[in-house]
Nucleic acid binder design. Structure first.
Lengths: 338, 338
DNA sequence: CAACCAAATGAAACCCGTTACATTTTAACG
DNA sequence: CGTTAAAATGTAACGGGTTTCATTTGGTTG
């Protein structure tokens, strides 16, 4: 690999001049500039940006901590992060953590060892070890989707509670009074928020909250299927199921259909996220649309602002949601209540 | 940020000793080691790995050029890359190129400017500019899925032609003689390989190849839906549709069902990839399973071997495929042939 | 106790850009 | 033509590790 000194020698100038010719062409005379350019092309010089980054102390790398890229919604968020990062001259180091805290910590360490400037995560968990603590200063981190209660950290999210409430009210307005909820991973505050919204709606409508209508899930297709089969086994079967994400809903729908139920005639199913597949299910899924790509973009933008000292407070950006009513929800069946 | 000199001063030793105490503890006396460790903890020293990488000339970063992370199959491949990279101490710089050659070139430049050691791509296209050409030497690149004809480059793929042939034969065995093919992006050699396999099967079975049964697609749900509506408009409608990926198949199935057709009674649909959603469609999709995660792992492993000089030839790794027969394909309807 | 070898440690070069500061060249004007 | 300011260019330090080579320390042996 050629370096700047070879170029300087070949062009018969100093390294400083070469550097200037490349960085601030107006600072060198046209004659010198062309001499330098000639030499650059001759040896095929490409500056070693590792040296630049090392020197400047800025890597222009951002770590993205994602539980699993296989999740379609997360993939959309990542896509948004990518685009915003590229626009501002940053690269995304993707960390597929699979929920493993060791892996998380390993990637977080990249920030502490100057391999990355900051970190974006889709989980509510502080991945840094204590050594990074600077009281009063914000961590070089932004949260997406999940809000952390214990740490003051910029966050881009949506009002999950209101969204879940809106969806539940939609089901109630259709006449459903026994509405099951298939939850997300226990560790996720999101799950609680959506549960809270679900309860809000029940309360507002004067319906009783029945703990036995809550089913565990983990945002996968399979977990939706499993929960659905438990729902089918419920003696006093609910007439509607609200799933905390679309994958779960799609998994649940399959189970119901296999059991011979018609959706939404026999049972209504609703999801959350509006992933691309939701519009292409049978029936198409009623869901809450989130601006996933914008989540990613906004988070990156916020993080870079933070890193570049443009913000010192931790903002909380709330993105809008939209209730998308499709064919998977319909009026409650008459007289099916036990 | 503390540096190694501060630690050395505090511990009362030289920087070389600190370095050794951390890298090769057995090379320093126990007494010194503990002095150093004490100092390290005292100032919270974390080595600047950017400096190390700069010095060593190895970044231990790999660029992954992906047309779109939103594609579920690609997401699985990325996941595999991640895992293998982490195991060998490398990080993945994710490049969501959206098919844009400028973006591609930009990320490829990271290799040429020493920001990454190598590159993995899911496309058949040389992203490097000419300046990297070293005749006789392999480029620091590995291809996944797509094979490049013009460049000698290690590749991890599967026998797409045989797989497409196997699927087409499956449909033929079910009695289908008019089988439509919804293709992938034109730019992708994959598309041609699968088309070739499809033709192979027709030829072998003595069926005529009908150009009017080929429909364009781009691997998205929507393109499958669009192609399906064109198929419905075909006066001499085929009784089976082979889609070059699962998204396309799922999109097509929805269109057929909306038009009142029953799958597979009225029309059979087959896909390719076996993404998670395929097992949860209605009906579950017959498809070709590819070991996506292994693709990613194998590619990373190959690239690292290449970078570390462990291989000098460009191997071609062919992964196995499996025909997964589910409910979306069935016997051809009797007497529907015009 | 001298001699010698191994182990431990230190000094300084090195990687490759950027940039502050110093110096030289050029241009302008009296 | 001399003076002066501005423009152009050069010199060298710097960033933070690793590593080579030299030196010191320690222990062993005759």
């Amino acid at each position: 690999m050629s370096n700047i000194r070879q170029v300087a020698t070949l062009a018969g100038v100093s390294v400083a001049t070469v550097s200037r010719a490349l960085q601030q062409p107006e600072r060198v005379s046209p004659k010198t500039r062309s001499k330098v350019m000639l030499a650059v092309n001759e040896v095929g010089y490409k500056p070693n940006l590792m040296a630049v980054k090392f020197r400047s102390g800025k890597t222009h790398n951002l770590v993205a901590l994602v539980p699993t890229v296989a999740n379609v919604f997360f993939a959309r968020v990542i896509s948004g992060m990518q685009i915003a990062a590229a626009q501002r001259g940053y690269a995304i180091l993707l960390a597929n953590t699979l929920g493993d805290e060791d892996i998380e910590a390993n990637y977080a360490k990249m920030v502490q060892t100057s391999q990355a400037d900051g970190l974006i995560q889709l989980r509510a968990h502080n991945p840094f070890d204590s050594s990074i603590n600077k009281p009063g200063e914000l961590l070089p981190m932004v949260n997406v989707c999940e809000v952390m209660s214990d740490i003051n950290c910029p966050v881009v999210t949506l009002d999950n509670r209101s969204a879940a409430k809106a969806m539940t009210l939609h089901l109630i307005e259709l006449g459903h009074s026994r509405i099951a909820l298939i939850k997300g991973p226990q560790s996720s505050p999101l799950t609680c928020e959506r549960l809270a919204g679900y309860r809000d709606a029940l309360t507002e409508a004067g319906l009783t909250f029945d703990e036995s209508l809550l089913y565990p899930g983990d945002f996968t297709l399979q977990s939706g299927h499993d929960a659905a089969s438990k729902i089918l086994a419920n003696k006093n079967r609910p007439s509607a199921v609200f799933c905390e994400n679309d994958e779960t809903a799609i998994g649940a729908m399959q189970c119901f259909k296999q059991a011979g139920l018609a959706i939404p005639r026999d049972i209504s199913v609703a999801g959350f996220d509006d992933i691309s597949f939701s519009a292409f299910c049978d029936p198409p899924l009623t869901t809450i649309a989130q601006p996933a790509e914008e989540f990613g973009q906004s988070a990156v933008s916020l993080l870079i602002d933070l890193l570049e000292g443009k913000i010192t407070k931790a903002p909380k950006v709330i993105m809008p949601f939209e209730l998308i009513v499709r064919g998977s929800t319909g009026p409650a069946p008459k007289g099916t209540l036990a």
